[in-house]
């Protein structure tokens, strides 16, 4: 979870006209997101990783500017991709030191989007590059792909509903690469060969993990104490 907060340190630079255009777009998106000082949301989380068997769980998500984030799962335990699920886009665009480059257009979920590549200018940044698919008319990020130094590449796809005005998604699908998982049987004290029961999970063993959160309800700008995030 702590990695969440390392994730996005982005820098803005004004070196290029094309880039400036994109910077303006990113800034507009940011401004829209900035309306939200804090929020609390309920949702369902689904974890789809080949070696994880987890049911759909109810989660509560809390956010406060600039980058405080907390995910609470009912029952207490959640399995999240290492290095941070930026379960919300706000944390990605919190700071402003980046280079934004236009990289064409694409259609996501039927929406025309502008592809923007954000390059952090700080070399110490954990993020190598972030690609945003921005729905310009609505000022919504439909998709984001972030490549980190340590934890590989993550993809986020968002769809919006009632809280689109705040730039808050109704559904976030987080995709990432997974590695194999194996513990010696001596540790787990399993005597028999239980390779077979895995077959169902193995069907999905595409080495791509997904975490899906569908939000049902947002409470925006009602104020959350900082101490809550500790």
């Amino acid at each position: 979870m702590r990695h969440f907060f390392f994730i996005v340190v982005l820098f803005v630079s004004f070196t290029n006209v094309q880039a400036q255009d994109m910077t303006a777009l990113v800034t507009k998106v940011k401004a829209k997101l900035d309306q939200v000082n804090d929020y609390e949301a309920e949702g369902n989380m689904k974890t789809d990783v080949s070696f994880i068997k987890a049911p759909i769980g109810k989660v509560k998500v809390y956010f406060k500017k600039p980058n405080k984030f907390r995910l609470k799962k009912e029952g207490g335990i959640s399995l999240l991709p290492k290095g941070g699920v930026s379960v919300n886009i706000s944390t990605i665009i919190t700071t402003s030191d980046f280079v934004a480059l236009a990289a064409g257009e694409a259609v996501i979920d039927g929406f025309k989007t502008k592809i923007v590549k954000l390059l952090p200018t700080n070399e110490a940044s954990e993020i190598v590059i972030t690609t945003l698919y921005i729905d310009e008319p609505n000022l919504l990020v439909r998709k984001a792909i972030t490549t980190t130094k340590e934890n590989g590449t993550y993809e986020m796809q968002m769809s919006y509903g009632a809280y689109a005005n705040y730039g808050l998604p109704q559904k976030v699908v987080f995709s990432f690469n997974t590695k194999d998982y194996k513990l010696p049987k001596g540790i787990t004290l399993e005597f028999d060969d239980n390779e077979k029961p895995l077959s169902e999970a193995q069907k999905l063993k595409n080495k791509k993990g997904r975490v899906e959160i569908t939000y049902s309800n947002y409470i925006v700008n009602k104020g959350i104490a900082d101490s809550f995030f500790k």
Partner: peptide
């Protein structure tokens, strides 16, 4: 929730 590590997968 109960989190369990098995030899080739985890169960929640």
């Amino acid at each position: 929730d109960m989190f369990l590590m098995k030899s080739s997968y985890v169960v929640l």
